[in-house]
Design a protein around this nucleic acid. Structure first.
Length: 293
DNA sequence: AGTACTACCTGGAGGC
DNA sequence: TGCCTCCAGGTAGTAC
């Protein structure tokens, strides 16, 4: 379930490893992941150079040189994996490994049924988007200045806030419960189910409380908690429960740091009470009724 | 207008 | 062992 820290992990990988790559060939597998664009649109990337990689909430924005400077927008959905390997690397069990002795590509193998986009580079490397559950999406912005309804709906990126400005932002919410508000990408972009639960636990606030009913102190606590859990997730290269991997196929290490998500029925690590798992805002939610008030 | 709920999708886990 | 059912969740669309 890639949320802001997982997407940021992939972005940093692209920044370090894939900038400057020139596209040789674009292949599309399942075209259902394409939104408002066609395989023919994506093939216009051929000859373009990857020269920037930004992130907005859970969306990756891959900027390419060459007029009119197209942007490829990628959302990893639930199970999406974006990986890159150089010509002198191979993929073993999903992980990118250096191969001894440079081996020129013998031509790409057929796409596995979960690979929906493969971008081969002139260097012999390639970038692959794989997504078994197909909740992921790829959007195509033909020009630098163009945008997309999905991006226009997003609020400010969660990591763009200071604790104080985030607390002020949260104050604008109405009577919705905290869990619902944190998941609303138009309020702030990037928080998903895992980090919402972690933030609420850290802030010692019940997911059922109303945002508009928080005291100023509680809102400040929540804002600091949101930023802290996201920061911790980024530092651990993301949370891998099942599918998430970074650009090189490595799992993130934040799962072992989670204090509530996936721990329903187990003792609370803060007070020892039993963690409750229930459905809030239509999502599995784990929290501690004895210390989250 | 603002809010709430459901469909989409597949692999893995658990039950029998 | 094998088959069936259920569950996970981000987003858009629909219903209210």
């Amino acid at each position: 379930m890639p949320e802001l820290p997982e997407v940021e992990t992939v972005r940093r990988g692209l920044q370090e490893r894939a900038l400057g790559q020139v596209v040789a060939q674009v292949e599309v597998g399942h075209r259902g992941i394409l939104e408002d664009c066609s395989p023919e649109d994506l093939r216009r990337l051929e000859g373009c150079t990857l020269d920037g990689c930004d992130r907005l909430g859970k969306y990756l924005l891959l900027r390419w040189s060459g007029a009119p400077r197209p942007t490829l927008v990628v959302h990893l959905g639930m199970s999406g994996q974006l990986t890159f390997r150089r010509a002198d690397e191979e993929v073993v069990s999903g992980m990118v490994r250096l191969v001894s002795g440079y081996r020129k590509s013998l031509g790409p193998p057929p796409l596995d049924r979960h690979v929906h986009l493969r971008i081969a580079f002139r260097s012999g490397g390639e970038m692959v988007f794989r997504d078994p559950r197909r909740f992921g999406r790829v959007l195509w912005l033909a020009q630098e200045a163009s945008t997309h309804p999905r991006l226009e709906r997003l609020g400010p990126d969660a990591m763009s806030f200071s604790p104080r400005t985030l607390a002020r932002r949260l104050q604008r919410d109405s009577t919705r419960d905290l869990k619902t508000a944190l998941l609303d990408q138009s309020l702030l972009a990037g928080v998903g189910n895992i980090y919402a639960d972690e933030a609420l636990h850290r802030a010692e606030l019940s997911p059922h409380r109303e945002m508009s009913g928080l005291t100023e102190g509680e809102r400040g606590r929540l804002a600091r908690a949101v930023l802290a859990v996201l920061k911790q997730g980024i530092e651990a290269s993301g949370t891998t429960f099942r599918d998430f991997v970074d650009l090189e196929g490595h799992r993130g290490s934040n799962a072992e740091k989670l204090r509530v998500y996936g721990r329903g029925g187990l003792p609370c690590l803060r007070c020892g009470g039993s963690l409750l798992k229930e459905t809030v805002a239509g999502r599995g939610t784990v929290w501690c009724p004895s210390c989250q008030g």
